[in-house]
């Protein structure tokens, strides 16, 4: 039985939480609050943002964000407050730095690579003779 319990603890339940605090009075601050808490990863509960987690730590971090917003901190200040303490791991949107270069440039690289192949293939094909004896090209999608 002991082994069983150990196994079960390894499986985190995705528990949902409602923010128990009242909305911030300033709708603009509230919107920033919602964005920020959705982009910060909860460390205890694995793959959920702190906005949707009921872990005590997530609640504390939500309060922290709220207080910093009320104190006039910028988004950047709040994010760096979090990364100073927990590392880049808390950011769902990784920062653009040297080690994430490949990640952020991936769309460009892949499109460039694919685009080159595409252009070359189409050019090659356009230069080749077209076979006009196909029987069923008309109706088949």
């Amino acid at each position: 039985m002991k082994k069983m319990i150990a196994v079960l603890l390894l499986m985190p339940l995705a528990l949902f939480a409602v923010d128990n605090n009242d909305a911030l009075e300033d709708p603009e601050l509230q919107e920033r609050y919602e964005t920020i808490t959705r982009e910060l990863r909860c460390l205890v509960c694995q793959n959920t943002p702190i906005s949707d987690s009921n872990a005590p730590l997530a609640e504390d971090l939500r309060n922290q964000v709220r207080e910093m917003l009320l104190a006039g901190s910028s988004n950047r200040e709040i994010y760096s407050y979090m990364t100073d303490r927990y590392g880049d791991f808390v950011l769902y949107k990784p920062p653009f730095v040297k080690r994430t270069l490949l990640l952020w440039l991936a769309p460009g690289i892949l499109l460039l690579l694919g685009g080159t192949v595409l252009v070359r293939t189409v050019r090659q094909r356009a230069a080749m003779p077209i076979d006009d004896d196909d029987e069923n090209e008309e109706e088949i999608e």
Partner: peptide, 8 residues
């Protein structure tokens, strides 16, 4: 360690 999430 980094996280890549919905915003990305």
């Amino acid at each position: 360690k980094i996280s890549v999430g919905p915003p990305y």
